[in-house]
Design a protein around this nucleic acid. Sequence first.
DNA 1: GCCGAATCGCTAGACGGCTAACGTCTCCAG
DNA 2: CTGGAGACGTTAGCCGTCTAGCGATTCGGC
Lengths: 145, 145
Amino acid sequence: MPEFLDLHGKTSKALRALADGAMRRHGLHLGQNHLLAALWEQDGRTPGEIAAALNVTTPTVVKMATRMATAGLLTRRRDDRDNRLVRLWLTDAGRALQEPVEAERWAMEDHVLADLTPAERALLLAALTKVHRAATNLLTAPADT
Amino acid sequence: MPEFLDLHGKTSKALRALADGAMRRHGLHLGQNHLLAALWEQDGRTPGEIAAALNVTTPTVVKMATRMATAGLLTRRRDDRDNRLVRLWLTDAGRALQEPVEAERWAMEDHVLADLTPAERALLLAALTKVHRAATNLLTAPADT
DNA sequence: GCCGAATCGCTAGACGGCTAACGTCTCCAG
DNA sequence: CTGGAGACGTTAGCCGTCTAGCGATTCGGC
C-alpha cells in the first residue's frame, strides 16, 4: 500500500471528521460552510458560479442549496434579467454564521498544525502544492499513462 | 480561509478524482479497492474487522460488500462456529484484481510525487503524520477546544 | 422575425460515508 | 438451566458527490 496515498487518505478522513464535528456545533453539515463562504465573499451568486468556485458540480450545489434553504440559511430567487439564472441570497441566519464559523475554522487549522514549526509548515504547503498540481495535471491530461 | 485546510481539501479532492478514474478502469468504484486490499491481506475477514482496518463504520462495509457481491467480486458466508459472524471471501475475479490494482496505485503515487525530491517526500510524510496525529487526538479528546 | 444551438438549473439515480435503531445469536451469571 | 447483557450484522435514512438526461430560457444567424 503506497505510503503517501495511504497517509494522505487517513489524514483526510481525520480532518473531515474533525471539520464535521466543528460545523455540527454550529448547526451546519460538512461542506455547507464552503457554500456559505462563497456567498459571504459575494452574495447573490448563481449555483453554477458557486460550483465552479468550490470545485464541485452544479447538482451538488443545487441539492445543498435546497437543504440550506429549508434550513433557513439562504433563499433562492430567479435573476430579473436572465430567467435561466437562479441567485442564492443569504438570510440573516446565514450571515450570522460567518464570524463564528470562520473562527472555528482558523482554530482548527491552528490546532492541527500546532506541532509543526513555521519551517515545517512552509515545506508542507509547498510539497502539497506540488502534489496538487501534479494530480490536477493528471486529471486534465491523462495522455501518458 | 485557512491556508492549509484549503489546500489539503483541494488536494484531497484531486487525488480522489484521480483514484476514482484509476479504479474505474478496472471496473471498481472508489473505495472498493480498500475493501479488496483488506481481503487480499487476509481472506475471510468479517465486516467488523474490515471496517476497523479501513477506519470506516460497519454499515459502510456492509453496503459496499453487498454491491461487490452482486458484482461478483466476493461472496458472503456465515461463520460455522459463531452464527453472528459473516465472513467475506474473495472470488477469483476479486483475487485477479490484486496485481493490476496495486500496480495502478503505485503508479499513481509515483506520478503524484514525481516533482518532489526524496528529501521533500520525507518531510511531507513527517509533517502529514504530525497533522494526522493532531487531528486524531482532537477527535478522541475534544476536552480543550 | 424566427428557429436552432448554447447555456443554465434541476431531477434521477448511483456510490461512499455516517448515525440510529433493530434483530439475532452467544455467553455468562445467578 | 435460564434469562439478560453484550456482540454482530443489517436496515433505514441522511448528506455530499458524481454522471446522465431533461426542461426552460436566451441568443445568434439567416
